[in-house]
Design a protein around this nucleic acid. Structure first.
Lengths: 127, 127
DNA sequence: GTATGTGTATTAGTTAGATGGTACACTATG
DNA sequence: CATAGTGTACCATCTAACTAATACACATAC
């Protein structure tokens, strides 16, 4: 791994986001064990304390449960994971549309722009 | 103003972004004078040094020019502003699509989702 | 010239995020 | 019991972002 962490976003939030996305797209399944704090820290090139913060937050969100001495596990609650999927979808779309509107782009321009950049639009690409 | 500045993003970047968007959507026009460092600081409820940083950055981006003793002014270079518009549009759309893809949403789902949430879609709203 | 409103520079202090290191508590295994 | 792998809890330190206060340089108007 050892990705960049370029952003101005705190690293722990970036790791949190990455884990949530891995769960939503099924790369990590319900009930599955996460890497230990120390392993994940090694893999990310980050301090264990930073990963610890991620796992605490995941537990607060009820996306993972930690069992002392055993490790952290993604929740078995599939309904919770479905909610997470919907939540991420809504948030990402709504934030995007709000950003675009604030920058002055019309709904038509937004829709056209998205269609243009989408992977398999039917030959509408321009750039 | 005195907006929230909720994010984990540095305040000076948030102000920078807001100004860029105001320029792109025409609320601030080419050649127009910006608020002084001190005024803007007051309006934003922020330290003058923080605003100073924004103006320096705007100058580096060639979006504004500062004239010592006079103030900071949006560039007269309309071509530069057109480029800024295109840049913001591309960045926002590409980041959005990349985020959605990373979260596991298909192009169809992305397009449908956007259409659904857009202000004046023709009765396709659901939520 | 003086006064005012600009940008600019410097210094010091606070805070959150992140690091580094150590130690402790719990669980499973043998 | 001992051991190893877990999560958990501290503590000291570093850095960037932000604040606070002051001072200086330039431009304009009087």
């Amino acid at each position: 791994m050892s990705q960049a962490f370029n952003n101005t976003q705190p690293i722990y939030l970036q790791i949190l986001q990455r884990l949530c996305r891995q769960v939503v797209r099924g790369e990590i399944k319900a009930g599955e064990k996460l890497l230990s704090v120390r392993e994940m820290a090694l893999q990310c090139g980050v301090n264990p304390n930073t990963v610890q913060r991620v796992y605490v937050e995941l537990e607060r969100l009820e996306i993972a449960e930690t069992r002392r001495g055993l490790g952290s596990f993604i929740t078995e609650d599939e309904a919770r994971l479905k909610r997470l999927r919907k939540q991420l979808k809504n948030e990402q779309i709504e934030n995007f549309i709000a950003d675009m509107a604030e920058t002055g782009f019309s709904p038509e321009e937004i829709l056209a722009g998205v269609r243009e950049k989408l992977p398999d639009n039917k030959g509408r690409r321009r750039d």
